[in-house]
């Protein structure tokens, strides 16, 4: 059974159809890439998936459960975590607190326990702290745990954002243009990291403009244009598809 299954997901803004009946599936332990020219509706589609927009039509099933129209915080709790195209780390607080906030919905500490069972509450917080430290170690940000997020380099902030998303133990991780603004060396590191996550059992959806990156990491690629799904296939199939090349590069004059 696919972990994520969308059926004819549509999002309209007034007369504009930003996402037009997109159906796709994501299987466990797979990296699915979504590509498409600017304005193809990739981010709108992801926003509809993660509850930032309410879909105008269609259905979204996650692990067999209908999550269509759930608010964003509930979807996060179901196990979908995401990053943003334009970095959204919490700039004025420490790296550590950023990631702790990412773990928010997995810290089982009801409000009344703070006062009625303070020891248990403290223990739960300590466990979360230990988990987050381990995660930071894993991505190489442990030494900077006390730095303010805004003082990190751009690449580190990108890593931090992924780390924050991972802190919620997601079943599905969605990366929205993780390479934006990265140089090629940083991109290679990121590609390795994403593949390593997959090898550890993580399921990932990546939206990306950068062809090299997407071809390198994806198991399967979905091409979107004008809000609709246009093609789906393995990286090799997509690379050799003349129609896809047309969409990206414009039509070639014959003769």
């Amino acid at each position: 059974m696919p972990i994520l299954d969308t059926k004819d997901v549509t999002k309209q803004f007034g007369g504009l159809v930003a996402v037009n009946q997109v159906s796709m599936t994501v299987n466990k332990n797979e990296i699915v890439g979504i590509i498409g020219p600017n304005g193809a509706g990739k981010t709108s589609f992801i926003n509809a998936l993660t509850g930032i927009y309410k879909p105008s039509g269609g259905q979204i099933f996650f692990q067999g459960k209908d999550i269509t129209g759930f608010p964003a915080y509930k979807i996060a709790k179901q196990g979908i975590a995401r990053t943003f195209q334009n970095l959204r780390v919490f700039s004025n607080i420490s790296v550590l607190e950023n990631v702790l906030i990412g773990a928010h919905c997995r810290i089982d500490n009801p409000f009344h326990h703070i006062f009625l069972r303070p020891l248990r509450s403290k223990k739960i917080e300590r466990q979360a702290y230990a988990k987050v430290i381990a995660l930071l170690k894993n991505v190489g940000l442990e030494e900077k745990k006390e730095s303010l997020a805004k003082n990190l380099s751009y690449g580190e902030q990108r890593t931090l954002e992924i780390c924050r998303a991972l802190a919620s133990d997601p079943e599905l991780l969605i990366l929205d243009e993780p390479c934006a603004g990265m140089n090629s060396a940083e991109m290679d590191t990121l590609a390795d990291f994403v593949k390593k996550l997959r090898d550890e059992g993580q399921t990932i959806v990546v939206i990306e403009h950068n062809m090299c990156f997407i071809m390198a990491v994806s198991d399967r690629i979905i091409v979107m244009t004008e809000g609709a799904k246009f093609r789906e296939g393995t990286p090799a199939e997509i690379r050799n598809d003349l129609e896809v090349q047309k969409v990206y590069l414009g039509e070639q004059e014959v003769e």
Binding site: P71, A76, H104, C105
Partner: peptide, 10 residues
Amino acid sequence: LAADTMGINT
């Protein structure tokens, strides 16, 4: 918005 996607019922 980011808080919302972290599972916080803002």
